[in-house]
Structures are given as C-alpha cells and as structure tokens.
Amino acid sequence: MKHYTMNLSESQLNQLKNGYSSFIKASDSEAVFFIAEHNQTTITALKNGKVTIEGIEINNELVLIKNFLNIKDYEAVGSSDAGSLDVFGPVVICSTYVSLEDIAFLETLDIGIQRTISMKKIVEIAPIIAKRLTHSIVILKPFKYNELSKNGFNMNKIKSLLNNHMIIKTTAKIDKTIPVILEQYCNPNNYFNYLKEEKLVYRDIEFSEKSETPHISVLVSSIIAKYAYLVEMHRLSKKLNLKLKLGATKDVDEQILEVVNTHGSKVLIEVAKCNFKNITKQNIEF
C-alpha cells in the first residue's frame, strides 16, 4: 500500500471536496473534512488541511488532484541540516537539486510533502535518492565543531557558513538559474551577517519557515543529511561500544557521564558537541 501526503488551503479543500462529491464516504471523525474513494484509492482530507492519498497505485490520482487544483511543480535547489539539535555526532548540511523529472521519481518512493519521516524510511530511501539526485553534502565532525565553537562560532553561524558553501557547490553543477530554498533557522538578516567575511555568498535565496510546507528539494536534503548523520552515529557508537542516543534529553545527560566514566572526558571532544548545556552544566573537565 502506497501513500502520499500534501497540505492544502481551505479553498483548495473545498474545491477538492466538490470535485469528489460523487465519491464521498461517511465518516464519524470530527477531524475529517471528507473521505472519498476513487480509482481504487482512498483520499482522506482533514480539516487542518492535511490530505492523504492511499492505494496500491496512487500516481495517477496524485496527477489528477494536482491538475484539478492547478498545483504546479517547480524545480529547485533545497538545503537542510541534521544533527544540530543532537549532543552526540556531527552537524550535516546537504543541498540538493530536484528537477521536474526528479519530483515524479520521488513521488514513486511515496515521499509526500511532510516533515516527519521515520528513521526506517530514511535508511530505506536515502541511498536511492542520493545516487540519483545532484547534491552536495558536508559532515562536520564533533572535533572540528568544537574547534570552531572555541573560536567563537555559534551553531547558526556554523550552519550558515556550511549552507552557503553547499548551495554554491550545488548550483555550480547546474547550467541554469533556478530557485534556491533554505530551511530557515535564523533571521535572514542574521544569516547574511554571519557570511559578511566570506568572499563568495549566494544571495538569491528563499527562506522556508518551519511552519510552512517545505518544497520537496528541502525535504530530500533533510533525508540525505539525516541518513549521513545516522551513518556517522553508528560509526561513533561502534568506537565507544555503546549505542549513542539522539537528541539532548535527560537520558543523554546520563549517557554523557557513562561515556566519561568508561573512556575519559577527552573522548567527548571527538564524539559530542561540547558547548551544549547537557555537557557544560555537568562541569566536566577536559
């Protein structure tokens, strides 16, 4: 069973409901705007704008909906990151070019415009995506991150420098001018201020806010970055003979002490971001 998720406006929801008026099925859920069955696919539209298409084959129905609502796909370069909210592991930045042909291909992998994708799904599809799509990626390992942090670089400045480099690298691989979209993590003015000492700065950027539906180029960049992050976390876990935890939770606080007690405090410089509060609040001496 395949599925695809998209987010629509209120007017688009009403338009879609009218289009499926002859195929609507009853639903008792207060969250559901309508459910329709058409061409052996189920279309579930929620009042919050989320629409899911499910079926054995869904591409024809997806094309039908896009054409009906006059939704135009467009190619773009998207940039996103992974690891910046995790104590352990690297910071990964990926910038990816997605053509119109790539969008059609990605939809066959059941990639919808949704922010939450399971780790299992990421591990399954990231190598396939990375092999096909033009992209640039950088993995900033903890040792280098800690070195930059000591020199006064905060996380947003580090991410801005790396995003700029990856966007320049990716756009250089394309022989035409297309939109560039960056998943926003700081004010655009601050972003360019972080780059004021750089000789080359890519400035024609659209900043995509977290609350917005991301372009698929941003989504696939996130997938590739997360996969690279997970691969590096697996390597570090093997090095310590301990499965390192994701995030920056209390469980991570406890694991930090476990790592220090087993391997000494200096190993944190090689496996963790040492300026995170999870580490600094524990007064660990390096």
Rank of each mutant, 00 (worst) to 15 (best):
H3A: 08
Y4M: 08
N7D: 03
L8A: 08
S9P: 03
S11I: 10
Q15L: 14
I24L: 03
K25N: 12
K25F: 07
E30D: 07
F33P: 01
Q40P: 04
T44H: 00
L46F: 10
K50A: 06
E61T: 10
V63F: 11
K66Y: 14
F68R: 08
V77Y: 06
G78L: 13
G89P: 02
P90F: 12
V91Y: 07
S99V: 05
T108V: 12
G112C: 08
S118D: 11
E124S: 15
I128F: 11
S136A: 02
I137L: 09
L140E: 03
E147A: 06
L148V: 01
S149Y: 08
S149N: 08
N151M: 09
N151H: 11
N151E: 13
N154T: 02
M155H: 03
N156M: 05
K157D: 04
M166N: 12
I167S: 03
A172F: 01
A172T: 07
K176P: 05
I178K: 07
V180R: 07
L182F: 07
E183R: 10
N187F: 07
Y194T: 04
L195N: 01
E197S: 08
K199M: 03
L200R: 08
Y202H: 14
R203P: 09
R203I: 09
F207S: 02
I216Q: 10
I216H: 14
S217T: 09
V218H: 00
L219M: 15
V220S: 11
V220H: 14
A225N: 12
Y227E: 07
M233H: 14
K238S: 06
K239P: 03
L240F: 04
N241R: 09
K250A: 14
D251S: 10
D253F: 01
I256E: 02
I256R: 04
L257Y: 04
V260H: 05
V260R: 04
V267D: 00
V267Y: 00
I269N: 11
I269G: 02
I269L: 10
C274I: 15
I284V: 11
E285Q: 14
